[in-house]
Each structure stands twice: as C-alpha cells, then as structure tokens.
Design a protein around this nucleic acid. Structure first.
Lengths: 138, 138
DNA sequence: TTATTTATGCAAATGACTTGCAAAAATTGG
DNA sequence: CCAATTTTTGCAAGTCATTTGCATAAATAA
C-alpha cells in the first residue's frame, strides 16, 4: 500500500492529505482489524498524532464510509476498513477476546421480513460471542 | 402482573424484595421495551429510587439472566425482559428511533459455520437500522 | 509566496456508568 | 415480634470513552 494509493483514497472522499489521516488510513487498509482507538494509537508511528485527532479522523472516515464501526460488547468501539466486496461479521471469544471473521452472511430472510414491514435503507449489525477452541482446553 | 409474581421471580433468583427491584422488574415484565436507564427512571413511580440503584438492579438482573442488554447504535444500553420463549431482534428507525421487533430468527446457518470453527456457547447480537414507513413520507 | 481555509494539539468538558461510605431497609435467629 | 446481622440504597464523587473550545500549525487557494 503506497502513499499514492492512500492519498488518492483520501482525495476521492474530499479529505486533504495529512500525516494523521495517512497513517491511520494506512493502518486500517493494510492490517487486519477491527481496531480500537487505543490499538490505532499504539500501531501508528510514535508521535503521529493526538488521541483527539484519531477520534476526529475516525468520524470523518465513518461519514465518508471509508470505515465501519464494530461493537463487540466492549465499552469502546472498534473500526475496520469498509471493503464492500468483503462483507463479514465477527465472533469474539468471551474468554480471551480473540476476534475471528465470519465471511458468509445469511441474513436475506430477515431482510425480506423487514422490507415487508415497509422499511427501506436496511443495514444490520451482527456479532457472535462464544468460547474459542483454545479457551475450551484451558 | 401482581406483587406475588414479582416477588416470586426475585426470590427464584435469590434476590430480596425491595421497592426499587419491584418497580423496575414490574416495568420490564409488563411494558414493551427495550428501555434505557432514563426510560426506566421516568417510567417507575416518582421517588422510587436513585439512578445508581437502577444501574445496580440492572446488573443484578443481567447476572441472573432476568433481562437482556440491547445495543442499538446509541451511546447507551437498553434492557428488556428475557423471555426465553420469545427470542427476537429489533429494527430501529435511523430517523425517528422508533423500535420494532423482528420475531423470526434465521441464524442457524451462521451457527453451523461457527460450530465448525470449534466455538462453543455461541450467543449472538443482531440489530437492524432502517428508515420506517412514516419517516419515508416525511 | 501570501492569504485563507482546514486540521491538529492540548486541556477541559461531557455523559454514561461505577463506586465508597454512611444510613435505611430487609432478613435472620431467638 | 424484637434485636442483631446482612444487604440495599442514596448521595456524591470518581472513572473512562469520547467530544469540544481555542490557539497554533499545516494545507490549499489565489
């Protein structure tokens, strides 16, 4: 992932190219999330930016649909790059908090039912909480 | 819903019968939620109890599985009575925040997939965000 | 480059939720 | 039913993720 790609992505959403935006978007585009704000702060080069700036970048990225918010029953949000070709959900281990991706999405029957109620622009949030194989042994 | 029923429900979970617990559980058992802590405070008789007590009752009810927590993309939690015979999900209108119930749950295919990954004790959170018929007209 | 707009850092504020502690209510053992 | 003990509550202060005000710095426009 080179700077040109990052810059182009930002520009395409009308966002100027600044160091915090570059580093945060780079992280989100290249590494596997979802990331908390703390994860982001620890993963970008030291001194890149302030925590307030991370929050501000995140809201802008969310507004522009560059990223998605993920809530996994924690008292903070996580964020991941929004790849429309890779719609997926998560399982988080109730014991060790390890997060796995679930790549197939079978919510069509729900959508039909909700459409029949007259709703439009339907989005969904689906997350799973379970005990992972490793924690079952321990 | 009479006091005897409420008292019995509390006792069955090893909780003593106090006024705050009685009023909060009564609300959750008789009225249609999910309720925020603010909703609860406004819906129980005036002077029933402090906000801290509502939070404490809620955590106890959650621990005893008397109620379930529901997150609908707001910056606070909602809670509803846990009726094992009435597993359901919610749609919240992205415009007016009205909440509807979705009574059928079609997540079996997901469960198979997650079981195959070796997970056990699988729970899920599924919520929908959409525009309701009324807000489409307005 | 210079002027203007936009973004950032820092510190303080916000708001949901939690907690310490003394008083009040509930339970227990006569 | 009463006195003793345990549990619960109210109040106020604390916590923690997230937001915001404002002066400075960086980016963009002219």
């Amino acid at each position: 992932m080179n700077e040109a790609k990052i810059r182009a992505t930002l520009k395409s959403k009308g966002l100027s190219y600044t160091r915090p935006r570059k580093e945060i978007l780079h992280l989100l585009m290249t590494r596997h999330g979802p990331f908390s704000v703390d994860d982001i702060l620890k993963s970008i080069p030291d001194g890149t930016c302030d925590q307030a700036t991370v929050y501000r970048c995140i809201s802008q990225f969310l507004e522009k649909s560059l990223i998605k918010e993920v809530r996994l029953g924690e008292d903070f949000s996580r964020y991941e790059f929004n790849n429309p070709d890779h719609h997926h959900h998560h399982v988080i281990c109730k014991s060790c908090q390890k997060i796995d991706s679930i790549d197939n999405c079978f919510i069509a029957p729900f959508l039909n039912q909700i459409k029949n109620l007259g709703y439009t622009e339907i989005e969904h949030a689906l997350e799973f909480f379970a005990i992972c194989p490793k924690c079952q042994k321990a």
